[in-house]
Structure formats: structure tokens, C-alpha cells
Amino acid sequence: MQRFVLIAVPYTWLLALFLIPFVIVFKISLSDIALSIPPYTPTLEDGFGPFFSALDFENFVFLTTDDLYWKAYVSSLRIAVTSTAITLLVGYPIAYAMARAPEEWRATLMMLVILPFWTSFLIRVYAWMGILSQEGVLNQVLLWLGVIDAPLTILNTTTAVYIGIVYTYLPFMVLPIYAALDRLDGALIEAAEDLGCSRVQAFWLVTIPLSKNGIIAGSFLVFIPALGEFVIPSLLGGSGTLMIGKVLWEEFFNNRDWPVASAVAVILLLILIIPIILFQRNQQRQEEA
């Protein structure tokens, strides 16, 4: 009896507030927009018969006819892939250096990587607005150094979005790679060097393959949230930065077209299912290993 309650309470909660809402999104993505509250028809109140007979795929057809959505998905994917790659290039050396740091520093270095994660995401993105703007700190420093003659336009461009994603998700990349490198047995690298590898060869042939799981986990942890990101493109990006999270938000709050917003969400979810499943497989393999 106790066991039943223990399972039933969190189970019911998640069913009611996680799974059922998705079913509703899916349902509304197949409905028509209406000028009412809630702004879609048919609703369940009309009964099940008319509810199901009136469902159709026209919102999904609409998504394919309007360039905006197609471009937004492609550009989100491009931004997410590129920024994941940059985060990996920035994060790997940090994780590597942390794993090579003296034992007594490591706990402190770990905490320094984790600390920004506890700080408000919104504030960390906002901090870059003051740095990247026309009269911002970065332009002032570059002008003062004489590197540039006129201020650069960085804020409200896609470049600023890349900087924002790399900055905010860097800890997610560093931590799994660090965990993998920390477990790596130094004797293996010494063995490779004894057997005639140069240090660079040993790095490519031993260190990188053995930290593969960390690289994969970190990349997914950056890629998956970056794809649906809303705050970064809306604060740092400009009108030219198309990202699907922002499109969904505007469709819902500005155009009040709930059925189309739901259709956008359903497709975003379908795109994400593959990387999410791959990520979970990778995690399970690591746990079993």
C-alpha cells in the first residue's frame, strides 16, 4: 500500500503536468484558429465527435508554405551546431587544463566552473548587452588600443548570439569532458610516448578517443537547449537572427495564433527527439561502463 502511494503520487503528477500537456499541444496543432478565448476551435466542450472530425493538418501545411518557419528551423540548427562546435573548441582546453592542474586546485576550479551556472541565466546574457553594444566596453577597449577606427556592430547580430550561447553553456561542455579526462589513466599516455608517439600524436590517438564520451555528452548538453533557445536570440540577436524558439514565442504572444505556435512546437520536438534519444543512450552506456 505504501509502495503504491509512493509510486502513484509522482507518477500522477508527471502524467497530469508533463505528458497530458503535450497531448494538448498536439491536439491544438491540428485545430483551427478562432477569434475567441481560447483562440482555437474545436474545443473539447463541443464533444468528441465534432472535435475529432474537425482536426486536420492545415497548420503543418501552412508551416511548409511560409518560408519564415523553414528558414527559422534551418537557421536554428545552423546556429546550434556552430555554437556547439565553438563551445567544444573553447571548453576542451579548459577541461584539459583542469584535469592536469595540481590535485589540491581541482575542487576549487570545479566550483569556479559551476558557480556561473547558479547565477541567473538572464543576467549572464544581459551582461553581454553592455559589453557588445556600439558604445560598449569591448568597442571602447578596442578603440583605445587602436585595433579598430570605428566601433563594431556586434550586438543585435548573429555573432552576438554565438557569443551568448558559448558563454552561457560553456560549463555544460567543460564538466563532462573534465569528468572523462579526470578518469583517464596518465600511464596510457606515457605508454604511447614510450612507444614512439610524439606528445601531439599521443593527444590525438589516446586522450581524445578516451574522452569521447565526455565530448559527446557535453555537445548534446549544449546543442539540445541551444536549438530551442529564446532568451539569447531575443536579447543579443537582431531582426536578422531567426531562431525557432523566438518564432514560437512571437507566434503565441504577438500573433496569438495558438494552433500555429503548437504546430511549431510539435516539429521542434520531433527534431529534438533524435538527439535526446542519442544523448540518453550515451549516458546509459557511460553508467554501465
Binding site: F18, P21, V25, G228, W258, S262
Partner: peptide, 27 residues
């Protein structure tokens, strides 16, 4: 299904979670 529902929200884009909950509350 239960463990799926525990892990899925961790990687779910916030816009989707927000939208789906709002539609539930209105529903």
C-alpha cells in the same frame, strides 16, 4: 514511461514546456 518523464523535462526546450502547461491550464 516514468523514468522517461523524469529525464525528458531536463532537456525539453523551455518554450515547449511553457506553451504546453499554459494550454493545459486554459483547457
Amino acid at each position: 514511461l516514468f523514468s522517461g518523464m523524469i529525464y525528458a523535462p531536463l532537456v525539453m526546450p523551455e518554450v515547449i514546456t511553457g506553451l504546453s502547461l499554459l494550454l493545459l491550464f486554459i483547457g
